[in-house]
Design a protein around this nucleic acid. Structure first.
Lengths: 153, 153
DNA sequence: TTCTTTGCAAATTCTTTGCACCGAA
DNA sequence: TTCGGTGCAAAGAATTTGCAAAGAA
């Protein structure tokens, strides 16, 4: 089932409508592979006056709808909302480099097991989770040690 | 070493000053046990005109300083910043009930092990992490099943 | 004295809302 | 024809900044 098909099913089930704007945004969002926030998405859209222009409020409204439909996953980073594909994309978590601000993905079955065990222990019904490891990626760590070495010279 | 002592050491090391406002805020923050956001803290402070009044910008500036000093831990929830004690308080993670919006704490050594193993595998230097399990707490789950039963009658 | 800090007001940033008109079903 | 959707402008919420006066060290 394609994201579009799933989305249409979702819209029908709720009596919502599929508009030009929603179709276009769905296309743009699924052409991206990586994480993005509302501003990054808007930056790649046509400007006001051009074909396929979508206003800022509509982008926000539609992103929320995509999340409700299960197409996108949303999480907070540094105070703003980030989105990433959730449908047809394997479940994963992130490492966030505080130097280059890039997000790296990883998967861990063990993490899920622990999550579920913790939840069982506390009689908590899991719906979802957010796990982000903060630190410094290998690349930035190497650059840093180089610049330190140079400082000493 | 008390939080105050540690804080003073931090201030000295950076050439910063310890003011009435900072002292008062430190006291207020360490009198709280639980999680809070900037607004909740401000609500418990004296009003403008009263003794010990601290302005909103100063609260934000000082919370940031407390985080830098390692006294507080900060994480995002529903788009706003939450703070909690980080010094002299055991490391833990959270479960967040989407119904009553309460945060529950738990600790898991295994989680830390997995975190560190994942990081090693990716040559990532861990500084910290954020892990929140989203779902429904036992209390809310029970209430919900009761109300469902009543709906059927 | 020096330089950080504070409070005020205003600005920013991100996101949401009211409303009249538009358009999908 | 009937609602839901859209764009615009404006409002909100949370947080930050510029600046002159106040206050630690």
């Amino acid at each position: 089932m394609t994201p579009l098909a799933r989305y249409e099913e979702f819209l029908q089930s709720r009596g919502l409508r599929n508009t030009q704007q929603k179709k276009y945004l769905l296309e743009q969002v699924f052409n991206r592979h990586a994480h993005f926030d509302a501003d990054q998405l808007i930056d790649q859209l046509p400007s006001r006056g051009d074909a396929n222009y979508v206003s800022r409020p509509t982008v926000y409204r539609t992103l929320k709808e995509f999340v409700d439909a299960g197409l996108l996953h949303r999480f907070e980073l540094d105070g703003r909302s980030m989105y990433e594909l959730n449908y047809g994309y394997p479940e994963h978590d992130h490492m966030y480099c505080s130097t280059c601000r890039r997000l790296f993905e990883f998967t861990s079955d063990e993490l899920i097991k622990i999550r579920d065990q913790v939840a069982r222990d506390h009689r908590f019904r899991v719906r979802d989770h957010r796990f982000i490891i903060h630190g410094i990626c290998d690349e930035c760590a190497k650059k840093r040690s180089v610049s330190r070495r140079q400082d000493r010279v």
